[in-house]
Design a protein around this nucleic acid. Structure first.
Length: 322
DNA sequence: TAGTGAATGAAAAGACCACG
DNA sequence: CGTGGTCTTTTCATTCACTA
């Protein structure tokens, strides 16, 4: 039982599930294809869901359950997730001995359950699993107790859905970069471009995939951008999700505007001079492009942002602790 | 590949206020 | 003092980028 990426002729990708004989699991495949191409979910979502479905199918196999109806024991599945490593060679019986440490955290288990719910609902809708599975997954409240105005349009039973299986997730503190760490990274930069990247991520709050997808025309750094046909006041950048050749992708489906301060404006000026020295006024419309290696002028990839950030973090740490 | 942290949109819950 | 309306915050369930 394993997840596998599949490239379709049109060039896009989705993840599917293979059984132990490396055959495609038809129902899982139909669900994941529908997610990707029918509901335009991201590749990463199908990957994540495929991983969850693999765990569910392994549990069914190891405990000799039929996946179509095993939802009646989803509570046991949650226990299994908590204690069983679940690899293909892992022990088949769960024996959580005293003092043993749980192998998956609550948040992880909840995510696996989300993908299993989606999978089973799809199976019910396409008549591959019995309809009563639905009420094992969700608490069904009919809305006849609500006033008429609050009820839906159609006749008959209307459901209010609430997932039955969900663990309480403990709060976790996030390890954010401190101001000193950002300053150290800034100091470790070797070019105006890299300093701009650090500021875009650290000060404006862009994700690396969003920064790598910026176009020059997205940067509105004057106090008044009406000459550009944009009514937003003050210096700002537009973050837009696009299919980019460098695989940069904004996580947010909606385009949005982010204000930037004078530090970013200044860093951009310095970068544009640096860029002009290397490329002249040409190059692609991408803001962040290769200046120091071939192919010159092609857009920086999100991966490059990351490896450069790693290097700076090391140098920065080295310079603060000599 | 397995896992984590956060964004997102919708719904629920809470805060606040005017009104009879 | 309850009622209803609106606005804000929190929670839920899902989605997705990104990391170890």
């Amino acid at each position: 039982m394993q997840a596998l990426p599949v490239r379709v002729p049109s060039g896009s990708t989705y993840w599917t599930v293979l059984d132990d004989e490396l055959r495609v699991v038809a129902e899982a495949d139909a669900f994941l294809r529908e997610l990707r191409f029918g509901r335009s979910r991201a590749v990463e979502t199908t990957k994540s869901y495929a991983g969850g479905i693999v765990l569910y199918l392994r549990w069914c196999r190891d405990t000799r359950r039929e996946w179509r109806t095993a939802a009646r024991d989803l509570g046991l599945f949650m226990l299994w997730l908590k204690w069983n490593p679940g690899g293909d060679e892992s022990v088949r019986v769960v024996v959580p001995g005293p003092g043993s440490k749980q192998v998956r955290r609550e948040s992880r288990i909840n995510k696996v359950l989300t993908s299993v719910r989606g999978f089973l609902v799809h199976a019910v809708i396409s008549k591959k699993a019995p309809a009563w599975v639905m009420e094992l997954l969700y608490e069904l409240g009919d809305d006849r107790d609500l006033p008429a105005q609050a009820r839906g349009e159609s006749e008959g039973m209307r459901y209010r859905l609430r997932a039955r299986h969900r663990l309480q997730e403990p709060e976790t503190a996030v390890d954010r970069a401190s101001d000193q760490e950002i300053v150290a990274m800034f100091g470790a930069c070797r070019s105006a471009r890299d300093r701009l990247i650090v500021l875009l991520l650290g000060r404006a709050g862009l994700r690396r995939g969003q920064a790598a997808g910026l176009r020059r025309s997205d940067m509105h750094l004057l106090m008044d951008s009406r000459a550009l046909g944009c009514a937003v006041e003050g210096a700002h950048v537009h973050v837009v999700r696009r299919e980019n050749p460098n695989r940069a992708y904004s996580k947010s489906r909606k385009a949005f505007v982010l204000p930037v301060d004078f530090l970013v404006v200044q860093a951009l000026d310095l970068y544009m001079m640096e860029r002009h020295d290397v490329l002249g006024s040409g190059g692609s419309d991408f803001l962040l492009v290769n200046l120091f290696r071939q192919p010159l002028g092609s857009p920086v990839t999100p991966e490059a942002c990351r490896s450069e950030a790693d290097r700076q973090a090391c140098d920065g740490a080295a310079s603060t602790h000599p």
